[in-house]
């Protein structure tokens, strides 16, 4: 098996309309306006439909019936100004997609990836992702991932991230699922941080589809001196759904600092669970956590109703604020 190196703009780079509509729902219109000349990778089911590289950025892919294998490298010292756009999805009602991705930022490189996963018609859809992200010394990556799983059934979505953040490197990973139904979601995010590395992982999820089943597991290992992390989870669950968040942060080096901040809102009949686990094995390391689960704050609700919003509009407004 070998990776195919693409030439510049080798393939049609039009994004199918259903992808565009889905991305617009997730408020990505501004990114889409970058146009076809911006670096991007679009994958529908297990087929790459468009790819665009720019100077300093290598993207290659290998498609097979079982999976699409992707490799992205930002070369040493290269700072990519405009976001790299990823679109993964299944546009029909049924199907399977498996993405095996390897992302590397070489020393001092900087990039932002805006990723959109679209399953707008999903009835029986499985999306799996195995992502390995490696950030070399002093590199910086912002990875924003938004999903849309349709309005009715949702999809079965299983992304697993394994991340290595090198000395002085920075990662901000933000996952947003706040439109439509979710279906079943199981995210595993594991990051290892070296000396002076920094990691911020933020998940904002609204499960309002009937019986949405959401599990998020964020694990951060602060292995290097003065490494730091923030794990932030904001969730809302309604309509007999289930939401489970487990945040683990372990510190084993001098000066390591971590914080887990988890807040979930429960609306009507639903189940929310939260398990923050903090583990420290160095006397000069410190980790803190805060967690809360509860209904929408009554005072916030009443304030908005005195401004003319109905109870439902007020709940939507509050939840969207927390999870936008």
């Amino acid at each position: 098996m070998h990776l195919i190196e693409e030439k510049y703009a080798p393939m049609p780079n039009k994004l199918p309309k259903k992808f565009i509509d889905s991305a617009k729902k997730c408020e990505l219109s501004a990114i889409l306006k970058q146009g076809a000349n911006a670096s991007h990778l679009y994958v529908e089911s297990n087929k790459t439909i468009s790819l665009k590289k720019i100077y300093g950025l290598e993207i290659s892919h290998q498609d097979s019936k079982e999976a699409v294998k992707i490799k992205l490298v930002v070369k040493k010292g290269v700072k990519i100004e405009k976001p790299i756009l990823f679109c993964f999805g299944i546009l029909g009602k049924t199907g399977k997609q498996k993405i095996l991705s390897e992302i590397k930022l070489e020393e001092g490189a900087e990039a932002k990836i805006v990723s959109h996963c679209a399953f707008p018609q999903a009835q029986d859809v499985l999306h799996e992702m195995e992502a390995e992200i490696k950030l070399e010394k002093n590199s910086k990556l912002i990875y924003e991932d938004s999903h849309y799983h349709g309005e009715d059934y949702g999809a079965n979505v299983v992304p697993h991230f394994k991340i290595f953040i090198g000395q002085g490197a920075f990662l901000k990973n933000e996952l947003i699922l706040n439109k439509g139904s979710i279906g079943k979601l199981e995210i595993i995010f594991e990051a290892n941080l070296e000396e002076n590395a920094l990691c911020e992982v933020v998940s904002k999820i609204i499960g309002k589809g009937k019986g949405d089943d959401i599990e998020v597991f964020d694990k951060i290992l602060l292995l290097g001196e003065n490494s730091r992390s923030l794990t932030k989870f904001r969730g809302a669950i309604a309509n007999q759904g289930k939401m489970f968040f487990k945040g683990v942060t372990e510190a084993s080096a001098k000066g390591a600092r971590g914080h887990i901040d988890c807040s979930e809102i429960i609306i009507g009949k639903a189940l929310a669970e939260s398990v923050p686990i903090i583990k420290v094995s160095h006397p000069e390391a410190r980790i803190t956590h805060e967690a809360s689960i509860g209904k929408v704050n009554q005072k916030e609700l009443e304030t908005l109703m005195t401004r003319g919003l109905s109870e439902k509009e007020a709940i939507d407004f509050i939840v969207k604020g927390r999870i936008k």
Binding site: E300, T303, G321
Partner: peptide, 8 residues
Amino acid sequence: DPAYFEGI
């Protein structure tokens, strides 16, 4: 004592 609104 007005309420606070996170994210708004």
